Simulated assay, not measured.
Amino acid sequence: MLEVEGLVKRYGKQNAVNDISFSLQGGEVVGLLGPNGAGKSTTMKCIVGLLRKTAGSIRIGGHDHLSVPAKKLFSYIPETPHVYDLLTVKEHMQFIAQAYAVEDWKRKAEEWMEIYELTDKQDKLGRDLSKGMRQKVSICCALLPDPELLFFDEPMIGLDPKAIKNTKRIFKELKENGKTILVSTHLIDSVETIADRIMIMKDGNIIGNDTLANLKATLSESDDSSLEDLFLELTKDE
Rank of each mutant, 00 (worst) to 15 (best):
G56F: 05
D64Q: 13
K45E: 14
K45A: 05
D64P: 06
T80M: 14
S57C: 13
L50R: 00
G62I: 00
G56T: 01
L73D: 12
L50Q: 08
G49Y: 04
K71T: 09
S75L: 09
H63K: 01
A55D: 15
H65F: 11
P81K: 00
Y76A: 05
K45D: 09
L50D: 10
S57N: 12
G56P: 05
K53H: 04
R52K: 12
E79W: 03
M44A: 03
S41D: 08
V83G: 01
A70C: 04
V68N: 02
K71M: 14
P81F: 00
I60L: 15
G62F: 01
L66D: 13
M44E: 03
L66I: 03
T80W: 10
H65Q: 08
P69D: 11
K45F: 06
K72C: 13
V68P: 01
V83I: 09
H82G: 06
L50P: 13
I58P: 09
K53C: 07
Y76V: 03
Y76L: 06
R52S: 15
S41H: 02
C46N: 14
G49T: 02
V68W: 00
K53W: 03
H65P: 07
D64H: 07
V48N: 05
V48W: 08
C46W: 01
P78S: 05
A70R: 03
R52T: 15
S67M: 12
T54C: 12
Y76M: 12
L66Q: 11
M44P: 14
S57W: 01
H63N: 13
I58T: 04
F74R: 00
V83W: 11
V48M: 09
K71V: 12
I47K: 09
G62K: 10
H65S: 14
S57F: 07
G61A: 05
L66Y: 04
K71Y: 07
H63M: 08
T42A: 13
H63F: 15
F74G: 07
T42L: 11
Y76H: 14
V48F: 07
H65W: 04
I58K: 10
I58A: 07
I77M: 15
I47D: 09
H82D: 14
A70Y: 02
T80G: 09
I77W: 10
G61N: 11
D64E: 14
L73N: 11
T43Q: 13
R52N: 15
S75G: 10
M44K: 02
H82P: 05
P81V: 00
S67C: 05
K72M: 15
T80Y: 14
C46G: 05
V48K: 03
S75W: 05
P78L: 10
E79Y: 05
L51W: 00
G56Y: 07
K53M: 15
P81M: 01
S57D: 14
F74L: 13
L51R: 00
L66F: 08
R52W: 02
L50M: 12
G49F: 10
S67I: 08
K40I: 03
R52E: 15
I77G: 06
A55P: 03
A70P: 02
A55I: 02
V83H: 07
I60N: 01
L73V: 01
L66N: 09
A70E: 06
P78F: 08
V48Q: 07
K72I: 01
V68Q: 06
L73I: 02
T42F: 10
S75F: 05
T54I: 09
L51I: 04
L51V: 06
